[in-house]
Lab assay of single mutants.
Amino acid sequence: MATVKFKYKGEEKEVDISKIKKVWRVGKMISFTYDEGGGKTGRGAVSEKDAPKELLQMLEKQ
């Protein structure tokens, strides 16, 4: 499965596409929420050019 690499609050993070719950576009950025486990929801964003094609496909399906 594909992963998304991004920075959040200065920390490098990587999340599996299957854990992503919601995806939306903000200008040229793709924002998303994902399941961190333990009932927590994380947030992240990547630029449109750095987003994996699976993430862009999720955006188109909504």
Rank of each mutant, 00 (worst) to 15 (best):
G39K: 05
G44F: 03
G42K: 08
S47A: 12
V26H: 11
E14H: 04
S31L: 12
L56G: 06
R43P: 07
R43C: 15
Q62M: 13
V4I: 10
T3H: 03
R43W: 09
T33V: 05
W24S: 02
A51H: 02
T3G: 02
K49S: 07
E54L: 09
G39L: 13
T3D: 01
S31G: 05
K53V: 12
A45G: 05
Q57D: 08
E12I: 09
P52E: 03
K22C: 15
I30H: 01
G10E: 04
V23L: 12
G37V: 12
W24C: 10
D35Y: 06
E11W: 03
E36G: 10
E14K: 03
K21Q: 14
R43L: 13
K19Q: 13
F32N: 00
K13A: 03
T3S: 05
K28F: 06
D35A: 09
K19L: 11
K22N: 15
I20G: 00
S18M: 07
W24Q: 03
K13L: 05
G44N: 02
E11S: 05
T41M: 12
K5M: 02
K13H: 05
V4L: 04
E48H: 06
E14Y: 03
Q62F: 04
K22E: 14
Y34T: 01
E48V: 09
K28Q: 08
E11G: 06
E12Q: 07
L59E: 06
E60G: 04
M29L: 07
M1H: 10
K53W: 13
Y34V: 02
A51C: 05
K53R: 04
T33A: 11
T41H: 15
E11D: 04
I20L: 13
L55Q: 01
V23G: 04
P52L: 04
F6Y: 04
G38S: 09
V15P: 00
G39M: 07
V15K: 01
Y34D: 00
D16C: 15
K7N: 06
W24L: 04
K49L: 12
I17V: 11
R43V: 06
Y34R: 00
Y8S: 04
K19V: 14
Q57C: 14
K53H: 08
E11Y: 06
P52W: 01
K21N: 11
I30M: 11
K21I: 13
K49Q: 08
G10S: 03
Y34L: 01
Y8F: 08
E48I: 05
K9V: 02
K9D: 07
P52T: 05
S18W: 15
V15F: 01
W24R: 03
E14R: 03
V46Y: 01
M1F: 10
S47C: 11
K5G: 01
V4W: 01
Q62G: 15
K7C: 15
A51V: 09
D35H: 07
E11N: 06
G44V: 03
K53T: 13
K9I: 02
G37S: 10
V46W: 01
D16A: 13
F32A: 02
G42V: 09
K49R: 11
A2L: 13
E36L: 13
R43A: 05
W24V: 03
K40L: 10
I30G: 00
L55F: 06
E60D: 10
D50R: 08
G44T: 02
G37P: 10
M1A: 09
A2M: 15
Y8P: 01
K5D: 01
F32Y: 00
S47V: 06
K22F: 15
G42Y: 13
Q62V: 06
V26S: 09
V26L: 04
R25C: 14
G39S: 12
I17Y: 02
G38E: 10
G10N: 05
M29S: 07
K40T: 13
K13Q: 04
E54T: 07
K28E: 12
T41W: 14
M58V: 08
S31I: 05
K22D: 14
G44C: 02
S18I: 13
G42S: 09
S47Y: 11
K5A: 02
V15N: 00
V23K: 02
M58N: 04
M29G: 14
K9R: 09
E54N: 07
F32E: 00
E11C: 12
G10P: 00
K5H: 05
I20C: 04
T3N: 03
A45H: 12
A45Q: 09
V46E: 01
S18A: 07
K28D: 04
V26W: 06
D35N: 04
Q57P: 04
I30T: 02
I17C: 09
K28Y: 10
Q57G: 07
F32Q: 00
K49C: 15
K7F: 08
L56T: 11
R43E: 15
I20N: 00
R25L: 10
R25T: 10
L56K: 09
E60K: 08
D50I: 09
F32H: 00
K53L: 13
T3C: 08
W24I: 03
E14S: 11
G39R: 06
G27N: 13
S18V: 13
E36W: 08
L59N: 04
A2K: 07
K5T: 03
M1V: 08
V46T: 11
D35T: 09
D50F: 13
E48G: 07
V4C: 02
K61D: 12
V4P: 00
A2D: 05
P52D: 03
T33K: 12
T41N: 14
L55W: 08
M1L: 06
G37F: 08
K7W: 08
A51P: 06
L56A: 15
G42L: 13
K13C: 04
K7R: 09
I30L: 14
L59K: 03
Y8G: 02
R25S: 11
K21T: 14
K28T: 08
E14C: 08
G27P: 14
K13T: 04
W24A: 04
Q62S: 12
K13W: 02
M29K: 05
T3K: 13
A51L: 12
E11I: 11
W24G: 03
G44Q: 01
V46N: 03
P52C: 07
Q57L: 13
G44E: 01
P52V: 08
F32P: 00
G38D: 06
P52S: 03
A51I: 05
V26N: 15
K40A: 15
K61H: 12
E36R: 10
S31R: 10
V26R: 08
A2P: 11
D16H: 06
V46P: 00
E48R: 05
K7L: 14
L56I: 12
T41F: 15
G37T: 05
K19C: 09
G39Y: 13
T41P: 14
M1T: 10
I20S: 01
M29C: 14
K7I: 07
E36F: 11
Y8V: 08
